[in-house]
Design a protein around this nucleic acid. Sequence first.
DNA 1: AAATACGTCAACCGCGCGAAG
DNA 2: TCTTCGCGCGGTTGACGTATT
Length: 388
Amino acid sequence: MGRAPCCAKVGLNKGAWSAEEDSLLGKYIQTHGEGNWRSLPKKAGLRRCGKSCRLRWLNYLRPCIKRGNITADEEELIIRMHALLGNRWSIIAGRVPGRTDNEIKNYWNTNLSKKLAVRGIDPKTHKKVTTDSINRASDRFNQRKGGKLYDCSQRSQRLERNVARAGQSTGLVIPNVHNLKADLKGQYIAGPRAIQSSNSIRSSSPINTLIQPKSNELTDDPDFMQPQPVVSSEAGKQTDDSTVYCSSDSAASCALIDHLSSADDDQYLSLEGNSNECYSHTVAEESGTLKSSNPQTHSEAICDSRERDNGGPVQKHDQFPEYDVLSFFDVRNAENEICCNDDQWVHEQEMPQLHSWDNQIDDQGKEHFGSHVNNDVTAMSWEASFWF
DNA sequence: AAATACGTCAACCGCGCGAAG
DNA sequence: TCTTCGCGCGGTTGACGTATT
């Protein structure tokens, strides 16, 4: 059955709003508040559809709307958010103060998608258009790790077993095993939708968020890709789980995931990043003492790269001092930036575009997407923590 | 100067979701 | 359980301004 129209359209104005109409709408909402859009036009004396009134208010008349050009910082934030969320404009707009979803959507379609295309990045997937460089970089990364190549197939099988076992033994939900399959040579696409709910939320989080999957199924249905709802403790605010992912096609996540799936210590590890990058961290114990990485596992490779990157001791994360930055690099740009020299990892400061992550953390729109892995509880259990 | 192409963005439209009855 | 309603979202349209021919 078709939906009834939102209003009787006969005799209603359409198109651009006049100053008089804006004034009527603004005055009415100032007096009576937002909402009840269906009945608003009649009460406000407007010959407009309720939907039209709502749109005009939200996109133009609201006092908090920021005017002027999108700044470079906003632009960078939008690109990052889009890499994480895709075309979820309203969620993206919620992280860019003063900007509307419509404005961001328009800006994306008219400017940013073209900019990315010029950079050789697919604006839909945020991946480099060519894959040869990635594969070559991945090969080199694998060769660096102890001078031997990774056996990707074994790792893949082990990981899938662990994922399945985690789901069965703990009741955790991991919707799509396919998301954990090996993809590019020697790499994992670390499943963005490998999800659990956990009772061990980090107490230091200002706002904790539990992912609540829609169904308690362990499925390998490759089409099971719909976003999962997240219920935040912040006044019932709902957001979308798709913001919680460890970095995908990063060699760091590859090595770290391998560590997670094989290590038997009780180390807490955390991944955070977006599709372009990967941080790995050792999280401080409650006592404040950092655990060392297990030298018997492939996390050693991460420490190794850390030492190459920073040329010295482990650095504290600027924004989250409980985190210890171990490594940071981006396979996607490896051709030009990481593997430009066979014997030396490029220094972090030589990849400024990968360090603007911190820039988007501010009082208005704090961003910190992370996957927190407790390797003690299960072979592959995931805890998602959000900082807003 | 006129015609055409192009870019921008406000506004529209259809659909899906959740709440209420 | 089903229907209706209100709202919000993302895709698309079209008016308008600017650049180019």
